[in-house]
């Protein structure tokens, strides 16, 4: 595959987008620089992955179809605590290595700017214990490439009242916001969705705007609570419908966005009977076709 003959990459239609597999020569290394997913062998830039060629000026990289999450500073991720250590938690965030959440980069109850003292270190397991889920932002990287997280915002922190989903990280693109709220009639108080860039998605019972951003009705004590609120059966059903929609879209490799998910919910409520729950395979397929205009034959 010769990159020079392809015209403008990225903009062109899918047919002329360069698709390469491992060991395939992309171009000469004299004119181009090698990026991720490539290596240089005998003055040739060679692909080491199966995916599409991405080019920025003279930098050539290959983006794999499916890959573990590669973190970047500022990314929003969802993770699970795997270990409580000294002044730090280890978090499994679906990346190549476990992430680290320092005690100094979390908000503790009772004052945002409070200093962390020794007694806080002893109570760490009361805040976040093994198995707890949290949403956080990538703060920095350590020398060995492991990421350090922070939850120093009222939007971040422990997760409850919902359901975790796991999709391919490629399906979640960087957006202005990764917190979405689907308003009622989707459940009595709507449904909140957090799209983590590491491919984990949290679907939970809806909250009001104020309580989400720390205004009126923000429950400061409830931040580290381990108890779910009472969720009505309708609320539960809404959560599970949204979760099924996300699963179906992910199954057909459709990149996710809040607009797509809410229009899928509308489509679903207009199509199915009141007492019907769950989505049949046939219906899921029809949903994807109607919403995206793409003919899907089989899940790839």
């Amino acid at each position: 595959m010769d990159i020079d003959q392809q015209g403008d990459l990225g903009e062109g239609s899918s047919t002329n987008r360069g698709i390469v597999s491992p060991g395939e020569i992309i171009t000469s290394s004299k004119e181009y620089m090698r990026g991720h997913g490539t290596y240089v062998d005998e003055e040739q830039v060679v692909s080491s992955l199966s995916g599409t060629i991405e080019r920025v000026n003279k930098l050539v990289s290959v983006k794999a179809l499916k890959q573990r999450y590669t973190p970047e500073v500022g990314d929003l991720v969802i993770g699970r605590i795997v270990e409580v250590g000294s002044m730090r938690w280890r978090v499994d965030a679906n990346a190549r290595q476990d992430a680290v959440l320092m005690l100094s980069s979390v908000n503790l109850p009772g004052g945002v700017q409070r200093r962390k003292i020794e007694s806080d270190a002893l109570k760490m397991r009361e805040f976040l214990a093994e198995g707890d889920l949290l949403v956080a932002e990538v703060q920095a990287f350590f020398g060995d490439g492991a990421m350090s997280l922070h939850t120093r915002s009222l939007k971040y922190g422990k997760l409850r009242n919902g359901q975790l989903l796991s999709v391919s990280p490629r399906l979640i693109r960087r957006l202005k916001s990764h917190f979405h709220h689907i308003p009622p009639p989707c459940g009595p108080s709507g449904v909140d969705i957090i799209l983590g860039l590491n491919g984990l998605i949290w679907v939970s019972v809806g909250t009001s705007v104020e309580s989400r951003e720390g205004g009126e009705g923000f429950d400061a004590e409830g931040v580290y609570s381990n108890k779910n609120d009472d969720i009505t059966p309708e609320g539960r059903q809404a959560i599970s419908s949204i979760a099924s929609i996300i699963k179906i879209l992910a199954m057909y490799n459709i990149p996710l966005s809040d607009i797509l998910i809410s229009s899928a919910y509308e489509w679903l409520s207009s199509q199915r009977e009141d007492d019907e729950d769950g989505i049949s395979a046939e219906m899921g397929k029809r949903m994807v076709e109607d919403l995206t205009g793409v003919q899907v034959t089989a899940a790839a």
């Binding site: 899918s14 698709i19 990149p255």
Partner: peptide, 16 residues
Amino acid sequence: VKDRTTRVVERMDKVI
């Protein structure tokens, strides 16, 4: 491998 990659990339491009 190429068949599969082409199929998935085409679909994602179309949707976007």
